[in-house]
Amino acid sequence: MRINHPLVGSMVALITPMLEDGSVDFNALKTLVDFHVDSGTKAIVSMGTTGESATLNHDEHVEVMQKTVEFAQGRIAIIAGTGANSTTEAIELTQAAKDIGADFCLLVTPYYNKPTQEGLYQHYKAIAEAVDIDQILYNVPGRTAVDLSVDTAVRLSTIDNIIGIKDATGDLKVAQALISQCPEGFLLYSGDDATAVEFILMGGHGGISVSANVAPKQVSDAYNAAMNNDRNLAESINEKLSDLHQHLFVESNPIPVKWALHKMGKCESGIRLPLTKLSQQFQIILQQDLSSLGVISK
């Protein structure tokens, strides 16, 4: 069911731009925020997976969120990535996000320690009770080694300030189960670019996209068409993005998307170990995608 909410449509999982020495490039961050405001993106996720949250320390994590809020100046919603595999740390980051003025928080499932479904429920419940800010669940089992079940998501959806879920499984059967079982008004987002348009056409409310870093207007147009139930238009726009959706994952995210944005002149090529710059063999492929989309000159 379509709903009226500020967080409906295309949202970007923003990179954290870095200089060659790996330090955060705040000038480039401001440029990227302005880019998304101008391109019709509905919200920016700061410090998610694509933002290299795993390699920034606590102070850096908070500073990037704070600067993103500052640069946005209320022109675009900011969703702070505040998940952690420690419930205490997740609460601290979520409180920090609230204190700096973030609009919402996105909380990835605790990674590596592989909690049970009851552990996941208690984790999210504890954060929701500790910090009075609207929160979005984030399930990406391909990275975390734990899968938030549909039953647990539905159970969590009854908590007042847990307002939605980002599902990055890419499994449309999971999407259909969430759409059919979650209560009306609970926000359902795709976190998988390749299947996002179909997810929205099925009844989802938008997507949190990696591809939107590179082609924000095209992704926004595709999602808006899907939200309007215009399958032909949505699929036509998305078809032009299909190679980009695939090739931004030829190596671990955000390696390809940071290279693409550097090629577009949006940032330097800095990235932090253990991530490395995009391999030469994939640069040629991705450059062809950027040329065909018209975001770089041929």
Rank of each mutant, 00 (worst) to 15 (best):
S269E: 10
V45G: 09
D38H: 11
F199W: 10
G22K: 09
E268W: 00
K30G: 13
A215D: 03
T55Y: 13
S149T: 15
A153K: 04
I15T: 13
L273C: 01
S269R: 13
I136P: 01
A128Y: 08
I78N: 03
G206V: 08
G206K: 05
G22W: 00
T144E: 01
F199A: 00
L201P: 01
G203A: 11
S279F: 00
C105I: 10
M11T: 06
D193G: 05
D167Y: 04
A102N: 08
T82P: 00
L148R: 05
F104K: 05
L278R: 07
Q73D: 13
T31E: 13
K240M: 08
T82M: 13
M18T: 07
A72Q: 08
A80S: 14
R143M: 06
I208P: 10
E20N: 14
T94Q: 08
K125V: 00
D221M: 14
G83K: 05
V210P: 00
I136W: 09
S53Q: 09
C182H: 03
K240A: 12
A13T: 05
T109N: 13
I79M: 09
A194W: 03
Q135P: 01
N4C: 08
A225W: 03
I159Y: 12
H36N: 08
E268Y: 08
P183E: 10
S53G: 15
A90R: 03
I127W: 13
V140D: 02
V197Y: 00
N224K: 12
T195V: 15
